[in-house]
Write a protein that binds this DNA or RNA. Structure first.
Lengths: 338, 338
DNA sequence: CTGTTAGCGCTTTCAA
DNA sequence: TTGAAAGCGCTAACAG
């Protein structure tokens, strides 16, 4: 167990100085402060090294009040309960700065951490992972630390969503894509394109509408598709919230779903079952993913780095399709007009 | 700050023994063990007394993954962030035993705790509150520790839900009540009755249907009301989930909402805005309530018990009404038939 | 601003 | 099984 003493030796200062730096109490020269911080990072020192604050599993998500993240927290909590650990929950509020600051808190106080990050770079995360053997990235894939990543196969998700419609005879399928430049968005879109190509269809960029991933964004994106007078019979969306916007836009224009246009979502949020019509969607097994992440974190720290080779080196979950009432067989007589 | 030494003196044992009891390490005689536990309870000793694990705010809710509780956690987290505290989240899984066990964990590890409990008795909670000056009960009112309780005025909530309908001309208003025997349920029903009486109407128990507070429960309760062939023009429900069930039951029977029957919910969950029609409901300001609770907890421990007299002695929040599309002016020609 | 030193809370060792 | 006492990790007081 690395103590404040080791850090002091590493940084060539006294233990008192290290203590001061950690607690930001008295003034410390910036040279010494950075030296201490470097030593802490190098040795992986934790304030939680005393027995009682140990056994903490940290969770970082964007917003605790979002149902999707609620499921993640619940998954981790299940494992924590089973293993007599406690749960430290922090949210990063959708900003890179807070994400960074929050991860550092977790590094300091926890033995384990399940982290959902959208805005930090691969390099930065690799460094954090090095400092904490029990750090697991959720919904993210970084090749060099792939044994520490648990992610959903978003390409496959986009693929099965689109294939479901293709199997029902749809050939003119629009896509409401998130305008955010993150892997989730590009991967799901990739799956959409893959399915079309597999059915021998060309990809027409006109059928793809970029918009903000909110209900209003989904509504606007749908308006844009409709305005182009495309022979649309179905729409695949980036997520359920956008699908809700799409349903609203269709209803406002007297277009019936699924009779005239089918819609599929992504995530299977609680609201999916309450929309009208009930939304067919791709199920994102968030709680299961979080449980797996938590178990992996415990394993990695129990057995230490030595045990790593014995584990599966990749953890990619496969989403499944949930059929409800927003999709139906394509009955449109419109000829395919690309 | 009460230390292991104080506990040892109180229990007439050595500090070593107390340490052993706390950490369940070596064997300790049951007599000594219970003596130590009693001393701990009496003095309110915390293992978190060392600086680093301090500054923890504990939150207990039934289920972290429920959106309603997510809002509560978020509210507490906001305050925690502003005050440089961390958040320990535990869920009690809807059982009295887990609630008890969870609260004890919080007593041991936190300086502050925001607790939502459904199943523990007033007496038990009063005892816990005594042991921890920073314990705040949310959504609960116990008279002798009312300065530690933050609750919603559920009577008023049921009242404004019903009054909204009365103002729109409805006179035959059903009520879908939760069959759970908790204050929330009886208070909301009380508000319903109050509003009817204020409008000079008699209360007919036939219009009140007891059912489980779930979507399926709401559906069944609505069937039961319909089966009685009452001249119903509106339904007030215990919560939004039941209202969703009511809307489904009406739609299945070809009864239009709000044209034939108006429906109001309670809580204003996320789903309320996604239902068809969008649900008019009573807004439960969960996040604001949690923020207030967290701030109160910090205040109480900062100033110690001495400062209590200077605070407001009661913290009752007033809900407001959110009108959407599930309620309309009563157009029914049916004569009032009680 | 920093190191020395004393001290605190807690755990562990050792002897009974 | 228990207490006395030593030891550990950290903080606080003081001196320079």
């Amino acid at each position: 167990m690395v103590s404040i003493k080791d850090v002091a030796r590493e940084a060539n200062v006294s233990t008192a100085t290290v203590s001061r730096v950690i607690n930001r109490q008295s003034n410390t020269s910036s040279a010494v402060t950075t030296a201490v911080h470097q030593a802490i990072a190098k040795l992986g020192y934790k304030t939680s090294s005393n027995k009682h604050s140990a056994g903490l599993i940290g969770v970082m998500v964007s917003d605790v009040s979002e149902p999707f993240f609620g499921q993640i927290i619940k998954g981790v909590e299940n494992v924590a309960r089973q293993n007599d650990k406690r749960l430290l929950v922090l949210s990063s509020q959708y900003s890179a700065d807070t994400e960074r600051q929050t991860i550092k808190q977790l590094l300091n106080h926890c033995d384990h951490a399940i982290v959902h990050t959208k805005w930090l770079t691969d390099d930065e995360l690799i460094e954090y992972a090095r400092q904490m053997p029990g750090l697991i990235l959720i919904n993210r894939y970084i090749k060099s630390i792939r044994h520490r990543c648990i992610a959903l196969d978003n390409v496959h998700g986009g693929y099965i969503a689109t294939r479901h419609l293709l199997n029902k005879g749809h050939r003119n399928i629009g896509y409401l894509c998130s305008e955010q430049n993150i892997d989730d968005a590009t991967h799901r879109l990739m799956g959409y394109k893959q399915a079309l190509m597999e059915f021998g269809l060309d990809i027409d960029e006109q059928f793809i509408s970029l918009c903000y991933p909110s209900e209003e964004g989904g509504r606007l994106g749908t308006y844009n598709l409709l305005a182009k007078k495309l022979p649309l019979t179905a729409i695949v969306t980036y997520n359920d919230i956008m699908a809700a916007g799409a349903l609203a836009a269709l209803a406002e224009n007297g277009i019936k779903c699924p009779d005239d246009i089918s819609v599929v979502g992504f995530d299977d949020l609680i609201i999916a079952g309450y929309l009208n019509p009930k939304l067919s969607t791709v199920r994102y097994p968030a709680a299961a993913m979080a449980e797996q992440a938590a178990r992996l974190s415990l394993k990695l720290t129990d057995q230490g780095e030595s045990g790593q080779s014995s584990f599966i080196s990749e953890h990619i979950l496969i989403p499944s399709f949930v059929e409800r009432n927003s999709t139906s067989v394509c009955t449109s007589q419109t000829p395919v007009v690309f």
